[in-house]
Simulated assay, not measured.
Amino acid sequence: MRILHLSDTHLYGDPAARHYDRIDTTAALRGLLARFDAVTVLDAIVHTGDASEDGTPESYRLLHEILEPFAAEKGATLAVVMGNHDVSATYGETIALGARGTTVQDRVVEVPGGGRIVVLDSSVPGAGYGHLEPEQLTWLAEVLAEPAGGGPAGGDRSNGGTVLAIHHPPLVGATKLLRGLDLDGLDELAGVLEGTDVRIVLSGHYHHEMTGAIAGIPVHVVPGITNVVDPVTAGDHEQSRAQSGASLVELVQGAPRVVTSVFPNAGDTREDAEAPVYDFGPEQVTAIVEAAGR
């Protein structure tokens, strides 16, 4: 499989709305996709959550109005994951979906050629952190008991294998804010994934590139489209830049191959593009974690 990995578009139903009073998120998404016009062959496009900022039906229709023609042009299957800013029920009522699992957003998306994308909804209504219910883990175990393409059990990858797509990365966050809003239950999830045909886990949420592993399976976190977080040089502040990023993921023999590009944000409405989109001090970070954390 060759996958274009996108995340965190934060679209609005109101075309005049701006993210942090600055970023035109629709223009940011369109501008980023234009950068990938030269990519002529894709098997799948995976959007790993926070598709919407306001959770409105209009924002989800806009997402699909933009992504579906792009996916069709590339011959790609489209899979969209729910994030903490999304409203899963609204998305499910607005967009016609295929077979669903235990929640409106737990489902299997088949990719021509034998691979598949398993979508998990890690969002918690009204919160920023991620959580998977026991019923979701049971459903995931049942799905993964048979490898993609219906091959023998035991992690067969000959038919392209499985991609797990989940908004909250199964990795400990790199900053105080992100650690307060990360995914819980990593040991339980690892127990389900071990020995399966999952080739890679794709996530968003952190708004910056990050790699790691769970149960020996690579995890890739893609930069955000609406902004890109600086997890290293911002010190005790939480800071993001007016940039947009995306990744190409190729499932080949051996380890997956991932390449990431980051561009100036096409939706930036501020003349001083070098100024942070936001710069939260320690007190603001604490307040956000208290309001949206566990």
Rank of each mutant, 00 (worst) to 15 (best):
L4W: 09
L6F: 10
D8M: 07
L11G: 00
A17L: 01
Y20C: 08
A27K: 04
A28N: 08
L29V: 03
L32V: 04
L33W: 06
L33K: 02
F36P: 02
T40A: 14
D43I: 02
A51E: 11
A51K: 11
A51I: 15
S52W: 01
E53Q: 13
E53L: 03
D54V: 04
P57F: 12
Y60K: 05
R61H: 05
R61K: 05
H64R: 14
H64E: 13
E65S: 13
E65L: 07
P69I: 05
P69T: 07
F70T: 02
K74G: 08
N84R: 13
D86E: 09
V87L: 14
V87P: 01
V87M: 13
T90H: 05
Y91Q: 10
G92F: 10
T94M: 09
I95R: 04
L97H: 01
L97C: 02
G101D: 02
R107L: 13
V108D: 00
V108T: 10
V109N: 01
E110R: 15
G113M: 12
I117F: 03
V119C: 14
A127N: 08
G130L: 08
H131Y: 14
H131D: 12
W139M: 04
V143I: 12
V143M: 00
E146N: 08
A148M: 11
A148E: 06
G151H: 10
G151P: 00
A153C: 04
G155K: 06
S158C: 07
H168F: 05
L171G: 03
L177K: 09
R179D: 10
G180Q: 09
L183P: 11
L183H: 05
G185Y: 04
G185V: 09
G185W: 02
L189S: 00
A190R: 08
G191L: 01
L193W: 02
L193R: 06
G195D: 11
G195A: 12
D197N: 03
V198N: 01
I200S: 01
I200V: 15
L202W: 08
Y206D: 12
E209M: 12
M210H: 12
T211A: 15
A213C: 02
I214A: 02
G216Y: 00
V221A: 08
G224Y: 03
T226K: 11
N227G: 13
V229G: 01
V229Y: 07
T233Q: 05
T233D: 11
A234C: 11
D236N: 14
H237W: 13
Q239C: 14
G245T: 06
V252A: 15
T260M: 04
R270G: 07
D272K: 09
P276M: 07
G281D: 15
Q284T: 14
I288H: 09
E290H: 14
A291D: 14
